[in-house]
Amino acid sequence: MEFSRRTFLKISGATTAGAILGSLGFNLLKPKAAYAQPLKIKYAKETTTICPYCAVGCGQIVSVKDGKVINVEGDPDHPINQGSLCSKGSALYQIANNDRRLSKVQYRAAYATEWKEVSWDWALSKIAEKIKTTRDKNWVTKDKNGNVVNRTEAIATFGGAALDNEECYLYSKMARALGLVYIEHCARI
């Protein structure tokens, strides 16, 4: 059976409020006037995700307001972590709000000492040219025993255990179509 996102988010919301309240033996609470700070995530949009660090696969809820991540915490419905997170998982917010994040394409020319900002279009065209030139120049049709091998050993790919399955699959498909054999990633090391 298929669960639409809308449905599960409703369930998730109800559980956060209901299950936690219930398990703690709370009656439905009346906010106490004395502490006046409003709950910051109250009107935020919630999205479920899975933690990008280790492979336990903990569920997280990302709260977004005005297109910005304002809070991340464990997904209480997730059967593995049941709302909990370690220090890394708890720090996800700082991946979203981080002035060191790359936001533009950078290029380093041969013998240059600095990065230079370039456009996607320029970079992608150059990359495609480099792949083609290197592949064509270093193409091996047959090995020394006369076996057809149809490969190039001049291009290597790395990554990525941090990619999604769909990305891994396309990466694998692309690399094989290009005739690459130096295909490796963190799973080996």
């Binding site: 709950l39 109250k42 464990g74 370690c86």
Partner: peptide, 14 residues
């Protein structure tokens, strides 16, 4: 702020 809304403290939750 969380307690008043029926949530656990952030440290306990995590």
């Amino acid at each position: 702020d969380r307690i008043q809304e029926g949530l656990e403290p952030a440290c306990v939750k995590t």
